[in-house]
Design a protein around this nucleic acid. Structure first.
Lengths: 145, 145
DNA sequence: GTCAGGTGGTTGGGTTGTGCAACCATGGAG
DNA sequence: CTCCATGGTTGCACAACCCAACCACCTGAC
């Protein structure tokens, strides 16, 4: 009983969050959509990867990633480097400008979150973060083909 | 510092979740989009409300809600009832069919979540759920209620 | 009464994110 | 070399948005 309720709550609240996050993201940073931001973040975190890797990781179609990447390149935020080992592959890297924008947006997003989470005990915060990581790390229905 | 890390992780993981959830939702229930599902759920939970209420609650534009509602009505899942006190208002209610579909989708979504969360201790689950509720309940940049 | 301004809801127009399918180019067996 | 798999792009369609303009109704001031 407890568990079923919790599961239901989690699904509902996650969905609400998703909706609001997207709405808020556009308002805060019209110049860098939530998608683009996420992809840039992944690039920074991974230190460069292929478009296909992004697609797999975010359960996006490769065409979607391709277009996003094209936009980011057009904006000068990332660059493509050939892979010596495989001519088909383009390794994506952040440019200086990309790194700069990413840092800016990250900071302002972080500030918004921090404000929202201001009155949370540190222990709850880290536990919450841990739960989210654990949740996302687990193989879900939507991926892992 | 711990807190900054946790905040950053939360923001990142929430975003990842949002992306995957949306991708997965369409695959699982092509007949009832994530948005529609959410709106139906709210209608059930609230026992009927106005379109404007939905818009405010989900930080959506009223036009968006209007179109969603139109679709749901066309599909026979909800019905509009006049408000005796205010002729402008249409109170939205689930129909029998709407209730039926909602229950179906909820069940299958719940099953997917449950599977994903199967190996979580009950205590962690309820705490996770609690965190999400608390997070969403707090006034955010997108305003609340 | 009537007229103004506010609120619930719809519609037109445009943007973005997305998937699917078809396509090209390269890589790797056989 | 041939055949198929893989990384990536492009055409097309669609869903979900938002903004702005609009209609209908409510409310309060006159």
């Amino acid at each position: 009983m407890h568990t079923a309720d919790a599961v239901e709550t989690i699904q509902r609240e996650m969905t609400v969050f998703a909706r609001r996050a997207r709405a808020a993201a556009g308002r805060m940073h019209p110049e860098l959509s939530l998608v683009s931001y996420t992809l840039l973040g992944h690039l920074e975190e991974s230190g460069g990867c292929r478009a296909t890797d992004l697609a797999v990781h975010y359960a996006l179609d490769k065409s979607t990633v391709s277009r996003q990447v094209a936009g980011l390149e057009r904006a000068g935020l990332i660059e493509r480097r050939p892979d010596a080992a495989d001519q088909r592959v383009q390794v994506l890297h952040l440019t200086g400008a990309g790194r700069h924008i990413l840092a800016q947006v990250t900071e302002s997003r972080r500030a918004a979150f921090r404000e929202r989470l201001a009155d949370w005990p540190a222990e709850d915060l880290s536990r919450f973060a841990d739960y989210l990581v654990r949740y996302n790390a687990s193989p879900g229905p939507g991926r892992q083909e």
